[in-house]
Design a binder for these strands. Structure first.
Lengths: 225, 225
DNA sequence: ACCTGAACACCGTTCAAGT
DNA sequence: ACCTGAACACCGTTCAAGT
């Protein structure tokens, strides 16, 4: 995690360049396209060259996740009510993940293994403690809360395919057609929701009410004080 | 989806056996262990034999997801308030997923492509409509709700590794040690929550309040009527 | 410190062929 | 209808070697 390279500029730059390339590649073509060999090729280097910078592929994925997590711009701790502060934190998480819906899922298993992720987790745990949660309850809630927030981004309707491409349009059309062809007797609600289920019309509203949902959920399971 | 095999017993049996084996294998060793070649070997058959039953590997994953989704035992539609009925549906989803925490994630992208998943989605959409949600809002909420419910299972602390194994114990110990070694000045809340963050002490309580959380979230974003 | 070359043990998948 | 054999184009990774 904490890198202690002495004259690090060359190494860290190189490493960062690879990580940037990997994220950009995943954004454009999905995580499956992120391959040691493909990245090597993109950088005009032999696949084995990457193994000097990363012990194994998983280390590269860790670095990608940490990059996204460190993009989270935590609000300065204020004195507002706990739920307003929680909302601000979750909004910051969403903002960092939104540009990378195809990569965000990597953070799910890595929050507690990166400095930036730990900072977010600590903040959320602190807020929940302030709201009256005991340690056990706060841990479970914080864990689920962070997962859900990231998933708000990864599960946005129509965002499974790379952004803005024709491929995405085709996928949405196809899915919509499939839903439209279902039996109206069996799945009436699905059919009338076919359009909304396949594409998000108003992203700001989607993420806004998503965060509202999560804050309300916390309020709902908050111990009565 | 809808299979129309004439004298199907032999084929469907064979196919089901493979799917069962794949789920059991994933439960025991994780999804990465589910490989065409490994399954073929387990069934004493050539890898290419599987390609008669599944057009490609993804079809096998689809079938695994559909199996889990069809394990959902939807409650008979009642006349209770919408939130009680929603709670019952979500509880049924959790119950179906809990035995397969390492497989449940497969359902996330496949709900709307399986009969069983469509039935659940239709039910949830109907409940949200009854609660006063318009189509757009209901779709986004239902989508997120199902994702979150599945994730309640896949993200349970300590359940990332196969169940009950020594490997799992080792992973938990390791993670706990890592968290305990952090700087108390920077991550005070994480450190004091190290135990709770790495293992779920009371699963019933965890899933119970998880479902409560989600129902409360829906209540929180429900349009005022 | 940083990279290459050759090799290994895996993948999913195609295609022609068998029964 | 169901399965095999041989082959292809990919993976991640190791190890010894170069500069």
């Amino acid at each position: 995690m904490v890198k202690s390279t002495r004259s690090g500029t060359r190494e860290r730059l190189r490493r960062d360049v690879v990580v940037n390339g990997a994220i950009a590649l995943a954004d454009a073509e999905g995580l499956d396209a992120v391959t040691i060999r493909r990245l090597a090729q993109d950088h005009g280097v032999t696949p084995m060259a990457l193994y000097w910078h990363f012990r194994e592929k998983n280390d590269l994925l860790d670095a990608m996740a940490e990059r996204l997590l460190s993009d989270i711009d935590l609000p300065t701790p204020g004195t507002e009510p706990w739920d307003d502060r929680l909302r601000a934190v979750l909004t910051a998480v969403v903002a960092a993940m939104r540009p990378h819906p195809l990569v965000a899922g990597l953070t799910l298993t890595r929050v507690l293994r990166s400095d930036a992720g730990l900072a977010v987790a600590d903040r959320v745990l602190g807020l929940l403690a302030a709201a009256g949660f005991d340690t056990e309850h706060a841990s479970q809630t914080a864990n689920f809360l962070l997962f859900s927030t990231v998933m708000l981004v990864t599960s946005e309707p129509g965002r499974h395919a790379p952004n803005g491409t024709e491929e995405r349009e085709a996928l949405i059309r196809e899915k919509r057609a499939m839903l439209g062809a279902l039996s109206p007797a069996r799945y009436p609600h699905v059919i009338s929701a076919a359009v909304a289920l396949t594409e998000c019309r108003d992203e700001e509203r989607y993420f806004g009410t998503g965060v509202d949902f999560l804050v309300a959920g916390v309020r709902g399971v908050r111990p009565t004080v």
